[in-house]
């Protein structure tokens, strides 16, 4: 088992590094204007939207309420730590009330 673990760690480490470097090398070869540039500029937003949708699918009522409040707080304050703490506090509070 221990050899198997080491090989997996090394293999996944190499693969992860190749992915990281690959993204940058790919971006170097793409045009810096027109449709490609518009796509690349929209990419971070689309990635985070996809990530949030994926995480919220698994959430229940508590997570959806807290998620909505975090979105409102973040839109108003534009402050990441504050929004995050409000969300965590809400989830913890609601779980205590429900359980």
């Amino acid at each position: 088992m221990t050899t198997e673990i080491w090989l997996s760690i090394l293999g996944l480490g190499v693969a992860s590094y190749a992915i990281r470097l690959g993204g940058y090398l790919l971006a170097l070869r793409l045009p810096q204007e027109g449709g490609w540039a518009r796509g690349m500029e929209a990419l971070p937003g689309c990635l985070i939207v996809a990530l949030v949708v994926l995480m919220m699918i698994k959430g229940g009522t508590i997570e959806w309420i807290a998620g909505g409040v975090v979105l409102l707080v973040a839109a108003k304050t534009r402050n990441l730590p504050t929004s995050m703490l409000v969300g965590m506090g809400l989830v913890a509070g609601m779980r205590i009330l429900v359980l």
């Binding site: 939207v49 949030v52 995480m55 998620g67 975090v70 707080v73 969300g87 809400l90 989830v91």
Partner: peptide, 16 residues
């Protein structure tokens, strides 16, 4: 402690 929600909250808060 709501800690599992921390990571979700970070990404939701990035959206605006």
């Amino acid at each position: 402690l709501g800690l599992d929600f921390a990571i979700v909250a970070v990404f939701v808060a990035l959206l605006p």
